[in-house]
């Protein structure tokens, strides 16, 4: 994900701002890392360039 996305993303639980922690990036974007809610502290992974903003209980690979 590009860093500019930070402007329009929020924590899905409380809609507060997220803080970016980069683990791996290339010239264009962040490939691996996490987004951490500045309010509730919940962590959302960024994997293969895609941030996963599902709350923890919705993260399984199969539908409910």
């Amino acid at each position: 994900m590009k860093e500019s996305l930070m402007d329009i993303l929020c924590c899905p639980l409380d809609k507060q701002d997220l803080e970016l922690e980069v683990v791996r990036r290339d010239d264009d974007e962040i490939l691996d890392g996490r987004l951490v809610c500045t309010e509730c502290g919940e962590e959302y992974p960024i994997e293969e360039g895609i941030p996963n903003l599902l709350p923890p209980d919705m993260r399984e690979e199969t539908p409910a």
Partner: peptide, 24 residues
């Protein structure tokens, strides 16, 4: 997760979210 990967493969900036939940 399958859709966001495919969208990204098509050059779309993709985010996994339930509807508008993770968007400000």
């Amino acid at each position: 997760p399958l859709a966001v990967r495919e969208a990204r493969d098509h050059g779309v900036t993709a985010v996994r979210s339930n509807l508008l939940d993770g968007l400000a």
